[in-house]
């Protein structure tokens, strides 16, 4: 199949999936008890019945559910994500402010997880029963099992309070008002701990996967042939073995992208990282349907795109897939 046709087909599937996500979540969140007017009333310290009725009328919450769904879907079709009940601002504006912090966090964590995970896995695979391999196995298990909330707080206590190397919270310092390179450096400084916290969970998986994959590949005939030809161990490992061992890692990386975004929610809360995860979390508590649905719509779009890119990179890494195995 041609690559362009393949991409187009995947994009159409992706779009159908995104609409499905929105409809399903619309029904789910409306099935939960309580309504946004109650939240706004709570925030106001109470309200009169008239005020509650006004709030419901303003946001169309007094309409039947199918009508609300239809109105929402038609505005989505016009690329209008609606107004936040809580902040009374366009959802697109709220998401626009937060999408790039989340993308930055998730991509950095993904990069750290893949690079460190693969390096650890490869090094461990060279002596599968050696002490480093044992360390990788233990680190992987602990990293995967530890709650991300706990990991984050431990890193903060260690590297922000006891040894004050990194800031506790935020994407920039509250007092910071620089631009350009100074801004980038400030963000990078704040990014270290949250990115590592998020990466640790996935790093464990990549380390185990690449270790297992490499052990299998290093036992293959073509690796023995490469060694027999007198190639150095580095060239054998990285040029011949790793290229083949990396395919399952790519697959997992694509699948894990959705998990990374959901993991980002907790990391964003612990580190006060101003991303979409925190916005989604707060929106659930506030019953801010348009904001929540907008975040889910965008997040599902990002996951669809990430999976598509994974598939494409898979085709690049393995010519057999591109040519249909011929």
């Amino acid at each position: 199949m041609g690559t362009t046709r393949y991409i187009l087909r995947r994009l159409v599937y992706g779009l159908v999936l995104m609409v499905g996500v929105v409809v399903l979540n619309f029904i789910l969140i409306h099935a939960a008890p309580g309504d946004p007017a109650e939240v706004i009333a709570g925030e106001m310290g109470g309200a009169t019945e008239e005020m509650l009725a006004q709030i419901r009328a303003r946001y169309g919450l007094d309409q039947p559910l199918p009508v609300q769904l239809w109105i929402y879907l038609s505005s989505i079709a016009r690329f209008d994500l609606g107004m936040s009940y809580y902040f009374d601002r366009p959802v697109a504006e709220l998401i626009g402010q937060r999408i790039w912090p989340t993308v930055l966090l998730v991509l950095t964590a993904q990069l750290i997880a893949i690079v460190l995970g693969v390096v650890m896995g490869v090094l461990a695979s060279r002596r599968p029963n050696g002490p480093f391999s044992g360390f990788v196995s233990v680190f992987s298990t602990v990293g995967y099992a530890a709650p991300v909330f706990w990991t984050g707080l431990m890193l903060i206590i260690l590297f922000s309070v006891i040894v004050p190397l990194f800031p506790v919270e935020g994407m920039t310092s509250a007092r910071f008002r620089g631009t350009g390179l100074a801004y980038a450096l400030n963000v990078a400084h704040h990014l270290v701990l949250p990115a590592f916290t998020l990466a640790i969970i996935f790093l464990a998986q990549y380390a185990r996967l690449s270790r297992a994959s490499m052990i299998e590949v290093l036992g293959a005939d073509y690796v023995r042939t490469a060694r027999a030809k007198g190639l150095g161990e580095g060239a054998v490992t990285f040029r011949h073995a790793l290229r083949n061992a990396v395919l399952p890692i790519l697959t997992v990386a694509g699948i894990q992208f959705g998990n990374l975004i959901s993991g980002a929610l907790l990391v964003e809360t612990v580190f006060n990282w101003p991303g979409m995860g925190r916005l989604a979390f707060d929106s659930v508590l506030r019953r801010d349907y348009p904001t929540l649905l907008g975040v889910l719509f965008c997040a599902s779009g990002v996951v669809v795109l990430a999976n598509l890119l994974t598939d494409l990179s898979y085709r690049l890494a393995d010519p057999r897939i591109r040519t249909g195995g011929r």
């Binding site: 707080l153 922000s160 309070v161 935020g170 612990v270 580190f271 006060n272 979390f281 707060d282």
Partner: peptide, 21 residues
Amino acid sequence: IIIRIVRDPSTMVLAMEAGEA
């Protein structure tokens, strides 16, 4: 005056301890 919204009380405590607020 800068009012920083921090959702997690533990993070607030640590931010105060670290002198960030």
